[in-house]
Design a protein around this nucleic acid. Structure first.
Length: 922
RNA sequence: AGGACUAUAGCUCAGUUGGUUAGAGCGCUACCUUGACAUGGUAGAGGUCCCCAGUUCGAAUCUGGGUAGUCCUACCA
């Protein structure tokens, strides 16, 4: 074995082997366990958040696979309608071609080409992360099977009246030329203005003043509203005002939606361009005047002077024109929430169009019930509240998108505008007995990508056919996802699956936090703080990283800033840490919090942990290879205290890990493993094995016992660790397993170690604690007294009881080796102790004679520190016990514990004080 | 506006049903290349558990209020 762990070559080698041998496919078993991957965008690439999510899913999958479940991790990607279409359009744009130049068919062909070309990125990354996905079952939302499912669902829901077409105000993206759903609109505060316009009363004598943040919409005003109880305006209700610039007259209406306190208390009403005004317009039967076109330019229903203008140019001109007319009362600075498209970033227009909707209210009812009655559980539970809050006030879901890339809506129209929904034109004609000469045209629109994602858990398993896979693997066991898509995806999956399959899509939703950078900032391309998980695995030099982060930046200023920040943050670039270290870092961060700050220091620490594991294995192999490890049934073995203890700790650790994984607390699982492997197995057990293995006088049975324990415990914790660190464990296990009497082609398919409660040996635990106490006591004196580590010491034990005596008798070689002692002697009862530095283990005093060794002042200072600490603690305990209320009311066991503690502390304190006294007299 | 979450060592975070000497990793200090590992070992320093009040024999933990921060939902023209 190499002296240091080199992850790169073993990782790709093992992944290849696992995949080639088909270990990722379901292996059978009585109980099924399945996870459906949240499908990433097929043309995108994985970021840190994905990496985190995949690591967690893979750990769950590997864990259950080893536990013997029939385990499926379903892999696949989605077509990401808007995002993908945008990318391809941009590429075409660079060639000076628009999609309209190409035409629909040719354009879609281009998108497929792009998908083929870029689609490998995601799957490569997934493999690099070690994800044990069943690649033989890979799916894509636009596959024929899944497309058929989408169509089937659309038709069914339409026939059930749960999908309908209607003219409504939608969120219109004037750049992408499509409607988008509420969830795809991001409203953020921006600085703007509030313009106050005077609208003259029809028939002279005065005016009303309205305030608006969007002056251009005034051209579509069809009323001015005031509050019905607003005395200032009561006399005007029912009168008309002149709408400037348009030559129209509009009524003053009363509606209690109006806030009397805001602005002037008069509101201009534009039903075709504002969601609230739309509702009001419907209440009052107002006309709806749409003044915009698909580009958000002014259309022919606007006054001639403004036709064809862009909305923001029109705004300027309208303000100027109003001012020229003396109708601009004032302009105030105003902070307002501006709605922008999450993909395009442009200001979204409420726009009146025909769209398809899902009646979400109906579907939500059983979906709410399923969470209420526990059929689906969120982990952590608090997310159920978020889910309920949204579901109980759910709005109908706009599912049509004016795009070319996606599932085309299976609806046809005749010239009279009748709608026919069905699987194909022919089917529709047949069903409705339409004459051949009647022309039908298919709806141009496609469905929201989330519509197909909502069917993911069952469409991937072959639905609408009742396949064997559906029977076995659906409902899936757990959904692993970020809280940011609870509404987008989780809720919609629950609704759709319950409706179509009358069963839940999954039993548990594990909601994890979002990965942020070291400063807590969200990672985003525009901030230039993204890290590709693969760069943490393979490493990347500074120039490469800078180039990656600034690539495709439109603004040179921003690129310069990112360049500088990157150079400051990663002056050396990023070192290669390997997949196992990255994964372990993810697990250590997987607590219940909402933010996961990714600190590069953590991964470095876990890279070191990998190295530690590697070297521990090297040590074990060096000592066990070509030796009798006592594996044979009839081998005579003798187990040392340390052997029994490490076995005991292994059982405790297995139990802790099982509990942690059961609660989705991978941070606790990883911590327990780290602690056990490093602080117990490596720091103590390996050290304790040396006095046996390197002792020429030790019996063959004792050596066999220690070798067997070394190798078997190592083999066990490799399996225990495998779901978290698949590669290093496999690599080492291959060599170690046969020596431990295990066989099998891969650690992946070995049984997961189960905790054996009978294996917990509390006597051994206590004895080792004693041993550690003595060793640490001596080391402490050594360290603080500046005694060279190489100098062997003779120590005296005093005041111990029978147990101390027998413990010493049995463990003297261990003490001598680990504390570097030349000799240990008991101070005879009543014997005069030499002046010495002292450590206490319970009642037992450990004396390191000071003659020629020890600095008097240093020892006094050390004792001073110790006694101070003890005295302080003692005072606290005494205070407690002197409190009658405590002694009366606290449980007897607690009081007893405090009493014992007080006694021990008191004795210790006295001894240290005596000791100090003697040293002072030197 | 409504709601949720967070506040513990210099940094990133654990801390189960109230009873610990409040922990870990990284960083820091001193010493050490001893035959698995310097990506290491040994020892150590470092905390007003955000503030105030309450419940309790006892609060990092429970309750109320406050402060600071983050986020979600809705939205006033």
């Amino acid at each position: 074995m190499e002296k240091t762990f080199q992850p790169a070559d073993i990782e790709t080698r093992w992944y290849q082997e696992w995949e080639d041998k088909g270990y990722f496919a379901p292996q059978g078993g009585e109980e099924a366990y399945s996870i459906m991957i949240p499908p990433p965008n097929v043309t995108g690439s994985l970021h840190m958040g994905h990496g985190f999510q995949e690591a967690i899913m893979d750990a769950l999958i590997r864990y259950h696979r080893m536990l013997g479940y029939n385990t499926l991790w379903q892999v696949g990607t989605d077509h990401a309608g808007i995002a993908t279409q945008m990318v391809v359009e941009r590429q075409l744009e660079a060639e000076g071609v628009s999609r309209h130049d190409l035409g629909r068919e040719a354009f879609v062909e281009k998108v497929w080409e792009w998908k083929e070309q870029s689609g490998g990125t995601i799957t490569r990354q997934l493999r690099r992360l070690g994800s044990s996905l069943d690649w033989s079952r890979e799916r894509f939302t636009m596959d024929p099977g899944l497309s058929e499912a989408v169509q089937e669902v659309f038709i069914r829901l339409y026939r059930e009246g749960l999908i309908y077409r209607g003219q409504r105000l939608v969120n219109w993206d004037p750049v992408l030329h499509t409607a988008i759903s509420d969830l795809e609109v991001i409203s953020e505060e921006e600085q703007g203005h509030l313009w106050h316009f005077n609208y003259p009363l029809a028939g002279g004598e005065g005016h009303l003043t309205v305030a608006t943040t969007r002056p251009e919409t005034m051209l579509g005003d069809t009323a001015v509203a005031v509050h019905p109880e607003d005395e200032r305006y009561a006399h005007l209700i029912g009168r008309m005002v002149e709408l400037p610039l348009t030559g129209r007259e509009i009524p003053v209406i009363a509606d209690d939606y109006v806030d009397r306190e805001f602005g002037t208390g008069c509101v201009k009403i534009t039903p075709a361009h504002d969601f609230n005004d739309y509702e009001m317009g419907k209440r009052h039967g107002l006309p709806m005047i749409n003044i915009l076109d698909d580009d958000a330019g002014l259309n022919n229903d606007a006054p001639e002077a403004y036709r064809g203008m862009d909305r923001f140019d029109a705004r300027k001109k309208i303000v100027a024109d109003m001012e020229a007319l003396g109708l601009l009362d004032k302009v105030e600075d105003h902070t307002l929430k501006v709605p922008r498209g999450d993909r395009s970033g442009v200001v979204i227009e409420p726009y009146l169009t025909d769209q398809w909707y899902v009646d979400a209210r109906e579907l939500a009812k059983p979906a709410i019930a399923a969470v209420e009655n526990g059929d689906i559980q969120f982990v952590p539970k608090q997310w159920e509240n978020t889910y309920f809050a949204w579901m109980r006030d759910i709005q109908d879901w706009c599912i049509s998108r004016q795009l070319w890339w996606g599932h085309r809506i299976p609806a046809w129209y005749d010239d009279a505008g009748h709608i026919y929904v069905g699987p194909s034109e022919a089917a529709v004609r047949e069903e409705h007995q339409l004459a051949d000469e009647m022309t039908l045209r298919q709806d141009e629109d496609v469905l929201d990508t989330w519509f197909s994602s909502a069917l993911w858990t069952f469409s991937t398993l072959g639905w609408p056919e009742e396949t064997e896979e559906l029977k076995i693997f659906h409902p899936s066991s757990v959904l692993v996802t970020g809280f940011d898509i609870i509404f987008f995806w989780v809720a919609r999956m629950i609704m759709m699956t319950l409706h179509l399959r009358k069963e839940v899509p999954f039993h548990t939703v594990y909601v994890h936090g979002l990965v942020r950078d070291g400063e807590g900032q969200k990672m985003s391309k525009s901030k230039g703080n993204v890290i590709d998980p693969i760069d943490l695995i393979d490493g990347i030099d500074l120039e490469g990283l800078v180039a990656k982060r600034t690539a495709g930046m439109m603004q040179p200023k921003l690129a310069a800033k990112i360049d500088k920040a990157t150079r400051r943050q990663f002056p050396e670039g990023i070192a290669p840490f390997g997949t196992d270290a990255l994964r372990f870092t993810y697990f250590s961060l997987a607590s219940t919090g909402r933010d996961i700050k990714f600190d590069i220091g953590r991964i470095e620490g876990f890279r070191n942990f990998c190295n530690k594991i590697w070297n521990a294995a090297r040590y074990v192999l060096m000592n066990c290879e070509n030796e009798d490890c006592g594996i044979a049934q009839d081998a005579e073995v003798e187990l040392s205290l340390a052997d029994r203890w490490i076995n005991s700790k292994l059982q405790e650790t297995s139990a802790t890990v099982a509990r942690a994984v059961g609660n989705y607390r991978f941070d606790l699982a990883s911590q327990a493993l780290y602690e056990f492997i490093w602080n117990e197995y490596c720091d103590w057990y390996l050290e304790l094995s040396k006095p046996v293995l390197w002792d020429d006088h030790a019996s063959a049975a004792a050596k066999r016992g220690t070798r067997r324990t070394l190798i078997q415990v190592l083999e066990s914790w490799l399996r225990l660790l495998h779901p978290l660190m698949p590669f290093i464990t496999e690599e080492i296990w291959q060599t170690v397993a046969p020596m431990a009497g295990k066989s099998g082609p891969t650690i992946m398919l070995q049984p997961y170690p189960m905790a054996d409660e009978k294996g917990v040996d509390s006597a051994a635990n206590a004895d080792i604690e004693w041993l550690k106490g003595v060793i640490v006591g001596v080391r402490n004196i050594r360290g603080e007294m500046n005694i060279p580590p190489g100098k062997a010491l003779t120590v005296l034990f005093a005041n111990g009881d029978e147990r101390d005596k027998s413990r010493l008798e049995q463990n003297a070689p261990f003490l001598k080796k680990l504390a570097k002692l030349e000799d240990i002697q008991w101070l005879p009862a009543g014997g005069e102790a030499p002046v010495a530095a002292t450590a206490l283990v319970g009642e037992l005093e450990i004396l390191v004679p000071m003659a020629g060794l020890i600095d008097k002042e240093a020892e006094l200072a050390r004792l001073e520190r110790e006694t101070e600490k003890l005295a302080k603690d003692l005072a606290r305990i005494q205070g407690k016990l002197n409190n009658a209320a405590f002694v009366d009311k606290a449980p007897a066991t607690v009081v007893e514990k405090e009493r014992d503690k007080m006694q021990a502390q008191q004795q210790a304190l006295e001894k240290l004080q005596e000791q100090a006294q003697r040293i002072r007299q030197m």
